[in-house]
Nucleic acid binder design. Structure first.
Lengths: 212, 212
DNA sequence: TGTACATCAGTGAACGCGCGTTCACTGATGTAC
DNA sequence: TGTACATCAGTGAACGCGCGTTCACTGATGTAC
């Protein structure tokens, strides 16, 4: 049975993470300051260090939430639609997942950026669970690819899943950042759809080579 | 006729940019400090501000050098090889350019990262010439694509060139960063080659659709 | 050739700002008896 | 029920560090006459 004190502590921690998430979401990671958070959740500056050992820990907690929401968004995009019976269905699903990634990033720009921007201060090692949660994302790309190239070596397909994920990420990155105006942001979804479709078509083609 | 003073000033400026470039190259942008640079080029702290108005200006000068070297590397990769007569040649050239990008990034990791990491302090606007130089890079992807899909709308092809560039960038990014261990760094080149080849195959396929 | 003066790079201590983290202390809550 | 005590969250001033930029001053270089 948790004591009143433990309950209050738990609520305070949630409030802290909520405040941090909100701050990052609308002002970016660089705007996250211990003093502001203390004011927002109504406690003294030092009290924050009873809830969290570090600013890093706080950012990681927010990151974990973001990763979970992203995972859910990709899951939703991947789960809907026809079962993965035909190559066409697999292509559609892959496109849907990629577009979902794009939309999530656009709708959560600062939180999404924080996932990649944040570096542990001083000593480097990012905790293992973070890497874990990140790895889980690739699953959403792997299943449809297996349908498109069933004969392919699993290792090779895994690499392709990661590659495709990274490629889509790159397109979204160039589209959402002001810098490097490469991909006009209005055209991101179109660009991604074409990239994924072309890759799928290439893959299909590779599996069933055209007779010369 | 430049005076002795002007010559010395010019030499000092070069020394400053050299020092900044070397520092970024082997310790990263975050390690760039005015005091260190002053010590390296043998002048007082304040003297730096006779050569350069800002730390930002200095970083931009280094960035400009990096962009030029990158452009030259892509140019070299694109210019060698057979003329762009067949689709196969175009694909090869595109692959060569992508691999060259990857190698440049790997060989100039910190300088390459700086191109994307650096944000103007305070007020935002990045100077126009930076955007200009960045835009020039896409040309290397555009020409081969025209050969692969000659019938395609130029606007659409331009978007595809940017998309492909961004995609390759994403793969390199995930491969070179420690964070998000997505693409194992040993496999980057292989991953990129496959991605580009598949996209090209898809494009070729689209241009000459298989008879059902 | 020599003198007076102007210009401007060079100097480095000091300014200013920002901010995470600590720490000695306070006071409320809960427990023991 | 009442008293003494322990625990631990809460407090916010102060510490510590880092660093870009400024500024009053110095002194070398070059020009004018």
């Amino acid at each position: 049975v948790p004591s009143n004190a433990a309950l209050r502590r738990e609520r305070q921690l949630q409030a802290l993470v909520d405040a941090a998430e909100a701050t990052i979401a609308d002002q970016g990671l660089a705007a996250l300051k211990a003093r502001d958070l203390a004011r927002q959740i109504g406690c003294a500056l030092g009290a924050i260090y009873n809830l969290v050992s570090d600013m890093d820990e706080l950012v990681l907690r927010v990151g974990s939430r973001t990763l979970h929401r992203l995972d859910a968004a990709l899951e939703a995009a991947g789960a809907s639609g026809r079962p993965l019976e035909s190559a066409a269905a697999a292509t559609d699903r892959l496109v849907a997942v990629a577009v979902a990634y794009c939309r999530f990033a656009a709708a959560n720009k600062n939180l999404w950026r924080t996932l990649f921007e944040h570096q542990m201060s001083d000593g480097k090692p990012a905790p293992a669970w973070v890497v874990d949660e990140e790895t889980r994302l690739f699953v959403h790309a792997a299943a449809p690819l297996r349908v498109l190239a069933p004969e392919d070596d699993p290792k090779r397909l895994d690499l392709l899943a990661r590659t495709l994920f990274a490629a889509v990420h790159g397109v979204v990155l160039f589209g959402l950042e002001e810098r490097m105006i490469a991909v006009p942001s209005a055209a991101i979804e179109e660009a991604i759809m074409r990239l994924v479709r072309l890759t799928c078509a290439g893959l299909e083609n590779e599996a069933r080579p055209r007779r010369s």
